[in-house]
């Protein structure tokens, strides 16, 4: 019940962007009952003077590490944006991608979001964990391989965003002026659909910068999905994540 209730607070069925929210990580809420220590500090307008320029015609893509993505998403919610959790991974011991802080953030969001009463058409702030794919190397046996990626199918299309009055996208990430490779496939499509893409990194007050998203490798290729998912493990309960099996110890005789 806790998982379902919390998910519907984050993604109310009537909200425009809820169909894109990922429920998988909410399943683990009951096992880890604590929120973010200290709650969510506000994001005062004077510290982010550029924020008011963007307004309701902007969609955010928050690609920060774990807890930071949730905190930023909840801060943006206080400025009228609807945080849409896209964490498509699952949790277990010996996990490769830490999820404890994200789950704590989902708990905290329950209280924050229920007090805000965001309108159903509030512009979206899609939340991602920038540590979702720490490396492409093989994971050691016995570990829980919950690395994950995003595909264009995980986001609304550029046409859908424009239909809802969105003409600008702001990517908020730790560093760099280009998105991570998997996200580039999404942002490049949006750019081709006529949306302007800005990137925000560095100090809070530093204004976002308009960028041209470079065409990623295998863009629109029939093999993109195959290659991007190669080596990752799917969870039978949804999303990504499975234990890497131990190799058999009974090889040969003697």
């Amino acid at each position: 019940m806790l998982a379902r209730e919390t998910f519907f607070i984050w993604a109310p069925p009537e909200a425009v962007w809820s169909p894109w929210a990922k429920p998988v990580l909410f399943s683990d809420l009951a096992e880890m009952p604590n929120g973010i220590p200290g709650g969510v500090p506000p994001l005062p307008s004077e510290e982010v003077p550029w924020l008011s320029v963007f307004g309701s015609r902007t969609a955010f893509v928050v690609d920060l590490a774990g807890e930071a993505a949730i905190i930023r998403g909840l801060q943006l919610a206080q400025h009228g944006y609807r945080p849409v959790p896209l964490f498509n991974t699952s949790r277990a011991g010996s996990e490769v991608v830490p999820t404890r802080e994200i789950i704590a953030g989902l708990h905290t969001g329950r209280g924050v979001l229920s007090s805000l009463h965001l309108p159903v058409t509030a512009p979206p702030a899609f939340l991602l964990d920038s540590g979702r794919l720490p490396h492409r190397m093989a994971v050691s046996p016995g570990n829980y391989d919950n690395r994950w990626v995003v595909l264009p199918q995980d986001f609304p299309s550029g046409g859908r965003l424009r239909k809802q009055g969105i003409d600008t996208v702001l990517l908020w990430q730790m560093s760099g002026t280009q998105p991570l490779d998997d996200l580039a496939h999404v942002l490049r499509r949006w750019q081709e659909a006529g949306l302007r893409v800005f990137v925000k990194c560095g100090a809070l007050a530093q204004a976002p910068e308009l960028i041209t998203v470079k065409r990623p490798s295998r863009f629109r290729s029939v093999f993109h999905r195959f290659f991007v998912l190669m080596g990752l493990r799917r969870s039978s309960a949804g999303g990504f994540g499975a234990v890497v099996p131990e190799p058999s110890r009974n090889r040969g005789y003697g």
Partner: peptide, 16 residues
């Protein structure tokens, strides 16, 4: 079987 299991597991996150 896998699809059915997954569907049943995620059903609770669908309103209707």
């Amino acid at each position: 079987g896998r699809w059915l299991f997954l569907k049943l597991n995620l059903k609770r996150f669908s309103a209707t």
